Every structure is written in C-alpha cells, then in structure tokens.
Amino acid sequence: MNTLAAVWSWLTTASHWTGEAGLLHRLVEHLQLTAVCLLLSCLVALPVAIVLGHLGRGGVLAVNLANVGRAVPTFAVLVLLLLTPLGRYGDWATVLALVLFAVPPLLTNAYVGMRGVDRDVVEGARGMGMTGWQLVWRVELPLAFPLVWTGVRIAAVQLVATATLAALVGGGGLGRVITAGFNLASTPQVVAGAVVVAVFALLVEAAFEVVQRSGPAWVRGRAR
C-alpha cells in the first residue's frame, strides 16, 4: 500500500475519530487553544495599535519591537517560558508563547490601517466637531477595518498551524496526533495529522474571507 492510500485509510477509519485521543476531540482542543490565544492577542495588540495609529506617535517603534519577535522561533520562546515559574501552570506557557507569536501581524496591520485613512476625511470629520473617540469609532476604525481584519485573519491561520507545538510540552490539540504518529513510527498517522491541520487552516482562512465579504458596510471599510 502506497503512502497516500495508507493516509486515506487512516483518515477513513472510524476509530481514529472517536475517543479522547480521536481526531474530533483533538480538533476541539485545537480550536479552543487557537480561539483563546487569538482573543488574548487581539486584546493586547489592537487597542495599542488603534490608539497609536490615531495619535500618529510611537507606532513605528511599537511595530518594529513587535516584529523583532518574528525573528525568534516560537518553540524557542516556549522552551524558555517553560524554564520560568510560568511553566508550572499548565498550558499558560504555551498560551503566552502563541500570543507573542500572534501579536506582530495584528499590531502591524491595525497600525498601518489606521495611519492609511485619508487625512482629508479625518480633518473634515474633526471640522464637523467630532471628538477624538468619535473619530476613532465612526471614521478611522471603520475605514481601517479591512486591514485590521486581514491582520486578525493572518494571526488566526498562523495560530492554527503553530498550535501543534502544544503537543511537544504535553498540551492538547492536533499536534498530539502527529507526535503519537512519530512515537508509533506510523508515517500515515503523521501525514494524516498534518493534512488535518492544513485543511483546518484553510477552512479558517475561508471563514474569515466569507465574513468580510458578506458582512455589513463597516466590515468592508465604509465609514458610517
């Protein structure tokens, strides 16, 4: 049996989808980990980027500092965090490493989107008597939203792929399927796990695209 046939056979075996070690359970764990890390990274990066983008000060420094993190492998960050007291608290080291990994695209895209808003539009809104926060929420952020959403989409897809690292430190998710395949010397299981992760990432990408295309006007970048 060739490799592709063996992978298909593994994926279509019902017992591989059920139970605590099954694909469905691991998929739910992977989705939960991705969602938590994406939410936390948005809470960290987006307010900073939006405020700095509105003020027009300090953003370049913040973006450059955030992008420095891209040069450091996520696995190296995870290992270093495990050596700290944070490593004693379950999955928090993994969550923090993934959050740090997701911050750069969120921060960069949101800041660039805010600064890319037509200054004539902003000045016109200010001339109409809008306050700073009204400018942000009613003009700048709606117009910048396509780039902000792109940053969220990139971070989400990257998290789906990188969350497999959780399995290397005893966490859950689809990475456990892959590591179990290595432990069993089962190439079909390793490839099957990788295929499921890839398909999951593509589905997440498609979901974000559908939301943006079918969403209301402000999602597509039109100010109210």
Score class of each variant (00 low, 15 high):
His54Phe: 15
Leu38Phe: 12
Leu80Glu: 00
Ala125Gln: 06
Ala144Gly: 01
Pro146Trp: 11
Ala155Glu: 01
Cys37Asn: 01
Asn2Gly: 12
Gly173Leu: 04
Asn64Gly: 03
Leu82Phe: 02
Gly132Lys: 07
Thr187Ile: 14
Thr164Ser: 13
Thr187Cys: 00
Gly127Ser: 13
Tyr111Ile: 05
Ala156Thr: 02
Leu202Thr: 04
Arg213Thr: 05
Ala192Gln: 05
Phe182His: 07
Cys42Thr: 04
Gly19Met: 03
Thr164Pro: 07
Val191Tyr: 05
Leu203Cys: 14
Pro142Trp: 11
Ala201Met: 09
Val60Asn: 09
Val63Leu: 07
Gly173His: 07
Leu78Ala: 06
Arg222Val: 13
Val122Asp: 03
Ala21Asp: 14
Arg213Pro: 04
Leu141Lys: 09
Leu168Asp: 00
Val219Tyr: 14
Ala97Phe: 10
Glu209Arg: 13
Val36Trp: 08
Thr94Tyr: 08
Gly127Thr: 03
Gly127Ala: 14
Ala201Asn: 06
Leu147Asn: 08
Gly193Pro: 12
Glu29Ala: 11
Leu4Lys: 00
Val79Tyr: 07
Gly221Ser: 06
Leu143Asp: 00
Leu203Thr: 01
Val7Tyr: 10
Leu98Met: 11
His25Asn: 12
Leu24Trp: 14
Arg224Pro: 15
Pro188Val: 06
Thr187His: 04
Gly132Trp: 09
Val139Glu: 03
Gly221Val: 00
Asn67Lys: 08
Ala97Thr: 01
Gly151Ile: 09
Gly132Ala: 12
Ile50Asp: 00
Ala166Met: 11
Leu202Cys: 10
Asn2Lys: 01
Pro188Gln: 09
Leu78His: 12
Gly215Phe: 12
Leu24Phe: 11
Val79Leu: 15
Leu78Pro: 11
Leu11Gly: 04
Arg115Cys: 08
Ala62Glu: 12
Asn183Asp: 13
Ala71Leu: 15
Pro142Gln: 10
Phe101Glu: 01
Val197Glu: 03
Trp133Thr: 09
Pro85His: 03
Arg220Gln: 14
Pro142Leu: 11
Trp133Gly: 05
Met128His: 05
Ala167Ser: 13
Val60Gln: 09
Val196Gln: 04
Gly87Gln: 05
Ile178Asn: 09
Ala207Gly: 04
Ser214Pro: 00
Leu11His: 06
Glu205Ser: 08
Phe101Tyr: 15
Ala180Arg: 14
Thr179Leu: 15
Ala35Asp: 02
Leu135Thr: 04
Asp118Ala: 06
Val199Gln: 05
Met130His: 10
Ser15Tyr: 06
Gly170Pro: 07
Gly181His: 05
Ile154Gly: 00
Leu98Cys: 02
Ala97Asp: 03
Tyr89Asp: 05
Gly129Ser: 06
Arg222Met: 07
Thr162Met: 14
Ala49Trp: 14
Asp91Gly: 00
Val63Glu: 10
Thr74Gln: 03
Val177Ala: 12
Val152Trp: 03
Trp149Arg: 10
Val68Gly: 09
Met1Tyr: 08
Leu98Lys: 04
Val99Gln: 02
Ala14Gly: 09
